[in-house]
Design a protein around this nucleic acid. Structure first.
Lengths: 122, 122
DNA sequence: GTAGTATGTAAGTAAATACTTACGGAAAGG
DNA sequence: CCTTTCCGTAAGTATTTACTTACATACTAC
């Protein structure tokens, strides 16, 4: 994928329903890997690998105490992803508002049925 | 990937720097496929395929007029992605605030430096 | 020491992804 | 008609992903 930048890693981590569900579940509190894995129809190593992806994306931290591993949320990765989307949406919305206003003006000023389509005449 | 749900498709589309850059570029206004492709070190069909991914994610619309193809932004897909992150972050932040308060109370009340785990918890 | 628990990692495989080049369709213009 | 321009799609390939089973590690309890 050649997408090593932090944003790409974060979005890629979020692009999987199992990983998103893990995040939702961890919202209720830290959990061990085994307890997490019990909820999914896949092997425990698979869940562990999903956790590794989330950890690399800065969305989850694993704190190994003894043989147990507490998985907790960390807000770092999500902040960047949210910031990117928020900025895009902000400038977008502004642009759509301008466009909307533009069309409103056009409609008010003249009829101009926008015949640019397929050469017009019929 | 077996991730056909809309959210996964949207996040996967955002998980590529070229595609994100296309979105940023389209923010300034619609563009043809060829003009877009000129900015990237890859073939025109590759950009076209990126556009197909963005279109499937509901982030871009392609309006073919004659042999030109105007690519424009559409806010649908991004709304869902932003909503998901926003909700996560909201409940998260709340939880972190509680956690912070919890630790603050602990620190004030007593020392109790360990024994937190090995219980059932959840 | 041995046995048991919770976990990460290595190795292997099927599927998806990100490109490439080659080709075909649709409109503009001679 | 024919040529050019702009574009999408088919076919092929290298890399990445998402899982599996098997194994090694680190600690607890006896």
């Amino acid at each position: 994928m050649a997408a090593n930048d932090r944003l790409s890693v974060a979005f890629a981590a979020l692009a999987d329903p199992t990983r998103r569900d893990i995040l939702v579940r961890l919202r209720e509190g830290p959990s061990s890997v085994g307890d997490l894995a019990a909820h999914y129809p896949m092997s425990r190593p698979a869940v562990s690998q999903h956790l590794a992806v989330l950890e690399k994306a800065g969305l989850v931290t694993r704190d190994r105490r003894a043989q147990w591993n507490d998985c907790s949320l960390t807000p770092v990765g999500l902040d960047e992803a949210a910031a990117w989307i928020a900025q895009q949406r902000a400038e977008w919305t502004e642009r759509f508002d301008l466009l909307d206003e533009h069309f409103r003006n056009r409609r008010d000023h003249a009829e101009t049925p926008d015949d640019t389509r397929t050469g017009g005449s019929r």
